[in-house]
Nucleic acid binder design. Structure first.
Lengths: 220, 220
DNA sequence: TCGATAAATACATACTAGCGGTATGTATAG
DNA sequence: CTATACATACCGCTAGTATGTATTTATCGA
């Protein structure tokens, strides 16, 4: 294969193939050769020209997938002037979460948490970042400042809700539960969040229902 | 090295070395040779005589470490006749949790969740098992039966509390937070649990404080 | 503005050390 | 004598590297 005038296209192809494989087969279970085999004609040399290690490929692929999702979710907070409480509800409304759902529906990560352990670790770490430096904690603090939220432990509440939302409500690395069970989880999470001053709104139920439908339709 | 009259000792040595290495260096970061090097004189042949794969070694090492802990925690529920609510509090009291703490204090798993991803995955999976088939959900249901607990969504509450306790209150794969932050987490979790009908008791604060002290003393 | 040349880049090819795992040999316990 | 607990020797594959080659792009005098 000759030299490509637009190497970003090559990089994109590599990351697309890599993400798909890392999701379905896991990090360990995916070899560089597996990735190369999906890039017709390309060789390992090309891959190692653009990335210096397997780990870097994984991180780049993950970032590439997550960045637009995070951006979209953040953008949901920008329109109009909302109170902190309104923004919080917005964060868990369907229109904020749907792009993320659709990404995972395309990727279909392995339901075995051990196989998906590296993705799980990223989601775990991401939950803390999301609450601390990301959008959740800032929104809560904004709500406290404007009087729309009364929360005594904003940081802790943000972390707990983030963790449960990402690793429990989104059962990425677990077998898909029946719909009523998923809704029960959402209801339960909403109750727990309310106890520490966070009103996630009724929309979280609709969001959960929508998630379930998307994944069920994708033959999860 | 000659043939050992008591091969269980050999197995134990292998698992001890393996657990320590898997904790500190991660699963990927530990080679069979690394393990062999810690078993003076022994060779790879011995290891593969007793175990058929690296994965089996990991699982055996993990099980070996967790079994007595789970047993101890379960045994805390056996003495005297307690209501479900009392048993629930007991589950999060210091005397139930301390052995687990001390194990991890000895092992010192890597604070990087990616490096520790396989252990994280086990803890994640374990949280669901603990609530579903383990002791938590049965205790809650016992409490509902004897009228000492009023919980509308026992399964969901158990899962959520289990997850938060194992992956958030025990910051195994995260840098150790200041003591007041840890206590704030415990307080927050107790509030959230109370909202779905689970009274973890004041003891969860003492437990958390004790965890912090142990790990701080271990130079975490 | 234009070609000629030099430098940088996008790959391919060929190779290595180390990995997980296996096949087989050997000595000891029962 | 047999079964087992090891040691030895080996294999295919992996992540990663060193190097070669062709093509693009930057440089520059006219």
């Amino acid at each position: 294969m000759g030299r490509n005038k637009y190497p970003e296209e090559t990089v994109a192809k590599i990351l697309d193939a890599a993400l798909k494989l890392f999701c379905t087969q896991g990090y360990e279970g995916t070899s560089i050769q597996d990735i190369v085999d999906r890039l017709d004609g390309m060789t390992k040399g090309a891959v190692y020209h653009h990335f210096k290690s397997k780990e870097e490929i994984f991180n780049a692929a993950f970032d590439r997938a997550m960045t637009p999702i995070v951006e979209h979710r953040r953008s949901m907070l920008g329109v109009g002037n909302m109170t902190g409480a309104q923004k919080l509800k917005r964060l868990y409304a369907p229109e904020s979460v749907v792009p993320q759902i659709e990404l995972w529906a395309r990727m279909r990560p392995a339901a075995d948490p051990v196989k998906s352990s590296r993705l799980l670790a990223m989601q775990y770490q991401g939950s803390f970042n999301e609450s601390a430096d990301g959008y959740l904690l800032p929104v809560i603090e904004e709500g406290i400042a404007d009087g729309s939220i009364a929360c005594e432990c904003p940081r802790e509440a943000a972390e707990a809700v983030s963790l449960l939302a990402n690793l429990w409500l989104l059962p990425l690395f677990r077998p898909l539960e029946p719909k009523d069970r998923m809704l029960a989880r959402a209801q339960c999470l909403a109750q727990m969040a309310a106890a520490v001053g966070l009103d996630l709104g009724e929309e979280v139920l609709q969001t959960t229902a929508q998630i379930w439908d998307v994944w069920d339709r994708a033959g999860w």
